[in-house]
């Protein structure tokens, strides 16, 4: 880790001031940034510690929904009764993130804005891992990489588990910067970088993510994560669904996929496949199949197509309380 200057403001205003210089990084839980710094993948000259800002930590629910401070830890999110009750997709996704210690440290903002876990990126090959014009990912070991949008150079997967349900639930993120506050749908926190100079995050230098607001909903919602280990592991595929029911049928649906593309990916094909249908094994399976219609796996990750199918199917069925795979 390179040496850096350090500041720990206690107000957002001070934080913004401190964030102004270039090569400044915001630090909250530290479970991503500090690891990147240790590996010299990121070497900020200044680190602004945001966890002393109490104002960023609150989780408040009202008739309009729930507002989650970016500085709220995943542990705090999990202890929030309203989130568990109304937004089980979000709760479950957070429940499956990492470990108790990480959930105590890591924040909602940090989870959303963590950098990709692509092992080529983490080994210092840059975000796109291009070498002599060739993609190390495409040529190399891509078992954990993208199966969607693979025509481009961005073959890493978005690592945020929370972004997936938040997008399905229509959550918005509030970002504070030198020019004031802006609010964007959570999906717009991400982009597919066009070149090596572009990041996959849209938050600009000097800006701070302050909160996400999840609108009130009656939608049935659920997440399903396929992973290798039961203990600490990353999702191989993750799906979140939010379904506005129309009687016994699905009125409108939001289906979002995680860990399979450089951004959290809404699957309109899956949504269309399930809308207007009664939710059962047949329709859920069809929606899962539809979700992977455009998948183009790399040399080693065709298995993730199957996992994505199943994640969509299981998230849909879980939303109506069918967890058939737990019955054997």
């Amino acid at each position: 880790m390179k040496a850096f200057d350090y500041a720990a403001p206690t107000s957002v205003a001070d934080a913004l001031k401190l964030m102004e210089p270039p090569h400044t990084a915001a630090l909250s839980g530290g479970t991503d940034l500090i690891n990147r710094m240790k590996d010299y993948v990121s070497s900020p000259e200044r680190v602004v510690y945001l966890k002393d800002i109490d104002a960023l930590e609150s989780i408040e629910s009202s008739s309009k929904g729930v507002s989650i401070g970016a500085g709220a830890t995943l542990a705090a999110l999990l202890e929030h009764g309203e989130i568990k009750k109304t937004y089980p997709s979000l709760w479950k996704a957070a429940y499956e993130v990492a470990t108790p210690q990480i959930r105590n440290m890591a924040t909602v903002g940090g989870n959303l804005l963590q950098r990709p876990r692509c092992w080529y990126y983490r080994a210092g090959n840059g975000l796109l891992a291009l070498k002599d014009g060739k993609s190390l990912v495409r040529e190399g070991d891509n078992r954990f990489h993208a199966i969607f949008m693979t025509d481009g150079d961005a073959l890493f997967v978005n690592p945020s588990s929370l972004a997936v349900p938040l997008i399905a639930l229509g959550a918005k993120a509030t970002i504070l910067g030198p020019k004031g506050e802006r609010t964007v749908p959570v999906a717009e926190l991400y982009r597919v970088p066009k070149g090596s100079q572009e990041r996959e995050l849209t938050v600009q230098h000097g800006e701070i993510l302050t909160k996400v607001v999840v609108p009130a909903t009656h939608a049935k919602n659920a997440s399903y994560e396929a992973r290798h280990k039961q203990a600490h592991d990353w999702p191989l595929a993750l799906a979140s669904v939010a379904l506005e029911m129309d009687g016994q049928k699905v009125g409108s649906a939001r289906v979002v996929l995680g860990a399979v593309a450089p951004v959290p990916l809404r699957s309109e094909a899956a949504e269309k496949a399930i809308e207007g249908k009664a939710l059962n094994h047949e329709s859920a399976t069809a929606a899962g199949d539809a979700a992977v219609k455009d998948a183009k796996p790399l040399s080693m990750n065709a298995y993730k197509v199957q996992l994505t199918k199943v994640a969509v199917k299981r998230a849909l069925l879980a939303a109506v309380g069918d967890r058939y795979w737990e019955e054997g």
């Binding site: 210089p21 010299y40 990121s42 950098r115 210092g124």
Partner: peptide
Amino acid sequence: AAHDLKDDAVRGHSRRDFLRG
């Protein structure tokens, strides 16, 4: 590791620049 991994933030300003800012 011996390799000097590049900071992924876009470079262009030196520390001195911001101290003067």
